[in-house]
Structure formats: C-alpha cells, structure tokens
Simulated assay, not measured.
Amino acid sequence: MSFYSILIKLVLITHLMVSPVTFAEGKPKELYWEDLIPKGHVQVEAAAQANHEGAEQNWIQPNLDAPVVQALNNQLVSLPGFVVPLEGDDENITEFLLVPFFGACIHVPPPPPNQIVHVIIKDGVPIDSLYDAIVVTGTLSTKGWSGDIAQVGYTMSGIGVAPFEL
C-alpha cells in the first residue's frame, strides 16, 4: 500500500468520524407532509377554501390553530417540498418557506400552519428552480413563526438540500 493511499484512507476516515449528519446526529427521519399533522386531527385544506375572485381577503390561511406534532421537536428530519423564497441573493437562498405543493403562499392561499416549515440555512444553498421539488434536511422545531405571507407551525435549522427524486 502506497503512502498516498494510506493518506487518502486516513482523510476519508477522519471525515466520516466528524461528519455531523451521519454520525453525531444519526440518520435523518424521512417525513412526509401527513406526518406533520397529529393523528386524529382533521383540517380544512387551503385549496378547498380558495376563492380566486374578488378582493385579497378571499386568500385567507385556513386553520390558524392547526396543531403540530410535538414528538417531532428537535428531531433530525428530511422533508420534501417546494420553496417560497424569503431571504438570499441571486446565487444562494438563506431563508425560505417549505410548502407541500408548488404555488402555496404565492398563487393560492397558504396551507394550514402545520403544513409549512420556515427554514434557515446559515450559509445558504443554491436553488436552481422554484418549480422543482427538493428535500430539505435539518433539525425540526415545533416553535412557530409568523411572516407577512403566512403563519407557520414548524421551523427548521437546515443543513442540506437535495433534488427530490421519486
């Protein structure tokens, strides 16, 4: 075995030992939007209440008191969805809402708060297209957030974004 192959193995082993996602926090729990709704809770979806005619008041977010799943607090998770950008520049986005369907909060009323995740990714990530679904990984919190376009039931300290693949 050559010196360089030993060096490469040591670097890889060291990288794996300090990888925060893989070992320190464990494998992320894969979630889907229905997992964010407590068992037994029935809620009205935004699309069912949408009225695209008339004034802006017809675009009201439903179920502002929609409960969150407290057991998900401080869990490392991955969740697919679509981006509604809030902060960033032309290369990276640092703050966004993750929503279950394209156009939520922009073209149709926002979904209930327990169907929106406010994500902050400290160093930002590039988002190629807002039309494409992504998967966000990070630590989920049941601490809500409120902004101009929606009230949110969950927040996430994001550590990674990947394209969503079926």
Rank of each mutant, 00 (worst) to 15 (best):
residue 128 D to F: 09
residue 82 F to Q: 02
residue 82 F to P: 00
residue 146 S to W: 01
residue 49 Q to K: 15
residue 31 L to H: 12
residue 92 N to I: 04
residue 78 S to R: 15
residue 105 C to K: 02
residue 102 F to A: 01
residue 160 G to V: 05
residue 111 P to T: 03
residue 47 A to F: 15
residue 103 G to E: 10
residue 120 I to D: 00
residue 122 K to G: 02
residue 134 I to Y: 13
residue 163 P to F: 12
residue 77 V to I: 15
residue 116 I to K: 00
residue 76 L to F: 12
residue 10 L to M: 14
residue 159 I to T: 08
residue 47 A to D: 15
residue 130 L to Y: 13
residue 78 S to W: 10
residue 60 I to R: 13
residue 134 I to Q: 03
residue 6 I to P: 00
residue 97 L to I: 08
residue 9 K to F: 15
residue 58 N to C: 07
residue 124 G to E: 01
residue 20 P to V: 09
residue 82 F to E: 00
residue 46 A to R: 07
residue 159 I to P: 00
residue 157 S to A: 15
residue 138 G to T: 10
residue 14 T to I: 13
residue 46 A to W: 11
residue 135 V to R: 07
residue 23 F to K: 09
residue 159 I to C: 01
residue 9 K to V: 11
residue 60 I to Q: 14
residue 49 Q to H: 02
residue 161 V to R: 00
residue 15 H to I: 07
residue 153 G to Q: 05
residue 112 P to H: 08
residue 152 V to F: 06
residue 126 P to D: 09
residue 70 Q to P: 05
residue 1 M to P: 06
residue 52 H to W: 12
residue 106 I to Q: 02
residue 144 G to L: 09
residue 150 A to T: 06
residue 143 K to A: 15
residue 43 Q to P: 04
residue 90 D to E: 08
residue 85 P to G: 00
residue 165 E to L: 13
residue 6 I to E: 14
residue 48 A to K: 10
residue 103 G to R: 06
residue 50 A to K: 03
residue 40 G to Q: 13
residue 28 P to N: 08
residue 150 A to L: 07
residue 112 P to G: 10
residue 59 W to E: 06
residue 57 Q to A: 07
residue 153 G to F: 03
residue 97 L to Q: 04
residue 145 W to D: 07
residue 117 V to F: 08
residue 138 G to R: 06
residue 33 W to S: 05
residue 101 F to G: 00
residue 66 A to C: 04
residue 99 V to D: 00
residue 54 G to Q: 12
residue 127 I to S: 01
residue 164 F to V: 01
residue 104 A to P: 10
residue 60 I to L: 11
residue 150 A to Y: 09
residue 71 A to F: 03
residue 34 E to F: 14
residue 97 L to M: 11
residue 79 L to Q: 07
residue 136 V to M: 14
residue 34 E to C: 11
residue 2 S to F: 08
residue 105 C to E: 05
residue 10 L to G: 14
residue 135 V to S: 06
residue 27 K to H: 14
residue 76 L to M: 12
residue 63 N to S: 12
residue 68 V to T: 14
residue 18 V to P: 00
residue 27 K to D: 06
residue 68 V to Y: 04
residue 33 W to A: 04
residue 92 N to G: 01
residue 123 D to R: 09
residue 151 Q to W: 02
residue 97 L to K: 06
residue 13 I to D: 08
residue 115 Q to W: 07
residue 102 F to G: 01
residue 137 T to Q: 12
residue 138 G to N: 09
residue 94 T to M: 10
residue 107 H to C: 06
residue 130 L to H: 00
residue 29 K to E: 15
residue 118 H to S: 12
residue 95 E to Y: 10
residue 137 T to P: 05
residue 27 K to T: 13
residue 74 N to V: 06
residue 11 V to F: 14
residue 54 G to F: 11
residue 26 G to S: 11
residue 152 V to P: 01
residue 48 A to E: 15
residue 29 K to G: 03
residue 136 V to L: 09
residue 19 S to F: 02
residue 85 P to H: 02
residue 144 G to R: 03
residue 6 I to R: 11
residue 18 V to T: 14
residue 94 T to G: 08
residue 32 Y to I: 10
residue 145 W to G: 01
residue 160 G to M: 03
residue 100 P to T: 04
residue 83 V to H: 02
residue 98 L to N: 02
residue 85 P to Q: 04
residue 77 V to K: 12
residue 33 W to R: 06
residue 53 E to Y: 10
residue 50 A to D: 13
